[in-house]
Structures are given as C-alpha cells and as structure tokens.
Design a protein around this nucleic acid. Structure first.
Lengths: 208, 208
DNA sequence: GTCTATACACCGATAGAC
DNA sequence: GTCTATCGGTGTATAGAC
C-alpha cells in the first residue's frame, strides 16, 4: 500500500509497511534482552526510535505484533541450523557434528534461543495462538527432516524409522539440550547429551 | 510465629504462616491456568479467597512469592516421578517404563508441567534468580540419579558413564519430550522419542 | 501520516480504619 | 491482625493537533 512513488527518504518518513519489519527487528532485540514480559509497546518503539502511535499504526495490537514476530523469526531460524557441516564419517558422527554446530549457534546467541522458547510458551498459553506454536515446531521439524535426509544420503544409509518421526525426536532432543544448557551453561553436559542423542538417532537408520 | 496456642478456627482467622502455603497452592493453580503473566497478586488472592492486603502480610513481594513457589513446587515434583515402575526386563525396558510413567504424569496434568517450564524461564530472566533455576534443575538431576542407580541395581548392570552425566542427559531429554508434547499433544511422537532416549541412556551402562 | 497528549485499566504495594 | 480504600506507576490503545 502507498508504495507507488514513495521515496525512501528518512526514518521519520516511513510507510506502515516499512515500519513493520523495523519494529519486528526491534521487538526481537527487546525480547532477547528482557524477555516477553519486558517487551511492552513503549519499550519496542523506544528501541526502534519511533513514537508510540506508530506502533498501532503498523500493527493492530501487541498480540498481533507478537504473532507476526513469531512467524518471521521462525522463517529466519532456517539458515542458522540447516547447512550441514561437511564432515566425513558414519551417520552418528555426521549427526553429532550437526548438534555441535547447533550448540555453537546457541553459545553465540543464547538470548535468541531463549526468546524462541519464550515465544513458544507464550503461544501455548492462549488457545487461539496454539496453532502458531504448532507451526513453529512444524517448521523446525521440516528443517530437521531436510537435514536428516541429506545426512543419510551423504553417508549412504536409509532411515528405517519414518523420517518425520526421526525429525520429531531430533527436535525434541535439541529443545531439551538447549533448555538445560541455558540453565547450567555447561558445555560438557551439552556435548554428552548431544552425543547420546546422535547415538540414538543414528540407530534409526540401516546401511543401504 | 504466633503458632503458640492458636486454634485452627476459620479461613478468616489464619496466621501469616498458615496463609503462605494456601497462597502458594492458589498461585500454582493460577499459573497453571493462566501462566505467570496472569498470576497477579490480585488474581492469586481471589483464587485463595483472601484480601489483597493478606498477600503482602504473608510475603514481602510478588517476586519473593514466586521464588518460594518455585522452590516448593520442585520439592513436590519428587513423588510424581521417583517411584520406579516395578517392571522386569533389561535396562532399556526399565528406563523406557520410567519415561512412560512420566508421560502419564504429564498427560494427567499438562498445565502443571507447563507451569514448571514457565517458572524456569522466569527465573532465567533475572540474574539474581538464575540460581533458583539452577537449584530447580539440580533437584531434577538428583531425582534422576536416584532413579538411575535404583534401575541399574534392579537389572544388575553398572553405569559406565558417570551417573551425574547420565542424569543430565535424562533430564534434558525429558524436558525436550515434554515441551514437544505440549506443542503437538502427540502421544505417539512422545513414545518414539522416549524409546530413543531410553535406548541411548541404556547404552551408557555395562553388564556387571 | 505522524506526532504529543491523554484516556482508561490494571499492576504491586501500603496507609489507615476497624 | 485483617480488612477496605487508595497511591503511584505502567500497560495498551486512541483522540486530536499539526
């Protein structure tokens, strides 16, 4: 809308459509820093350098904003985890390398993963937002499936258990390892759990 | 305090010491029903059938209340998970039966486990409450250790990996399975993950 | 279209009547 | 000790000036 001849001039002259991603980005920073509870509309617009009224000009409500933020953030998670590390070895080693890569990602930006967990739990609270949490985890599962298929092809094995089920286990284990690392910040414990998870997952495949 | 000759008469005549557990109980119900965000002091006292002032007579602040609630709720979690099911079979089967028992517990009262997860994340947010989350998960790990030792003795094996590390993996996997079940409500997926977890854990022990 | 100013609800916490 | 009434602050959302 209004995107016809609009010039991209200054921050103070943005269309609502342009403001939305800026606010989403600012909101994600606030949530990572202070949690959902601290992500008031005032805090978000302050982070984005806008006035309070701009918020409700771009979004109908704070909840609608959080819904869109959740959806957008899930779409982005893709790149961080998907590209499988190009290691050689058996399936267990490849999967474990994938976990190691994810753990690096987690260590590099813990607040981000914590924010994702909070968004999930927030969505779980209201029945009308539950589908959002399901969509979020479906997306995780899709990414996991893709990675699992690639890994199996790479090392030349076949998944005995249906891939969607394997992917579900992978997502569940990753979640648990994430939450426990956020609590203990114990890299060794996370590695042990990752190895155990890789072990369990790799046993769901057979040599081709 | 004031517990000397106090008679246990009516609800309207309770000492602060008596009110505390009542408020904790009411607070837990509110959090299970509406989340931490909905657990305002007003909502809690309404649930407990008290006046607002009673709350701050029994607790210094809402945060102090949440701290005590978290601690008390962790202590209680013990009974629900600890008593190992008295199954026969190899270690994998015994551990899987433990997961099955926990999943029954989860299905019976999902809101409770969701509340526990929210309390953890709440504690993770403020640095001064982080130790509370650590204590919560240390307690989980203790319970897991106890169960793992009992299970190994029962089937006559020895843990090759240090028991605290095995317990850490158990807690992490349980967490992940819990969160994913809360999202998908998929019993089958939870069972598959539980079986995989039991498989991985049981491989950390050797025949005696 | 974009801002300032404000309406209105609810929050945690407390003063003061009883 | 226990209540009602209220304070000061913050939340979301919007009206109205420009």
């Amino acid at each position: 809308m209004t995107s016809a001849g609009a010039e991209r001039s200054a921050v103070s002259r943005m269309s609502a459509a342009e403001r939305r991603p800026v606010l989403i980005e600012a909101g994600l920073r606030v949530i990572a820093r202070e949690g959902i509870a601290g992500a008031s509309t005032r805090a978000i617009v302050a982070e984005a350098g806008m006035s309070l009224a701009s918020f409700h000009y771009a979004f109908e409500s704070r909840e609608a904003f959080l819904d869109e933020l959740t959806a957008s953030v899930v779409a982005r998670e893709s790149q961080a985890v998907l590209p499988l590390p190009d290691v050689d070895g058996d399936l267990r080693e490849v999967v474990e390398a994938g976990f190691t890569r994810y753990l690096d990602h987690l260590r590099a930006d813990p607040a981000r993963e914590q924010a994702m967990l909070e968004l999930t739990q927030h969505a779980l609270r209201a029945p009308e937002r539950h589908p959002l949490a399901v969509a979020q985890y479906r997306r995780y599962a899709e990414l996991a499936e893709e990675a699992l298929i690639t890994a199996a092809e790479h090392v030349g094995v076949t998944w005995r258990v249906p891939v969607p089920e394997v992917a579900g286990v992978l997502v569940a284990f990753s979640d648990g390892i994430t939450l426990n690392w956020l609590v203990h910040r114990d890299d060794h414990a996370a590695r042990v759990a990752a190895r155990a998870a890789a072990d369990a997952l790799s046993r769901m495949a057979d040599p081709r």
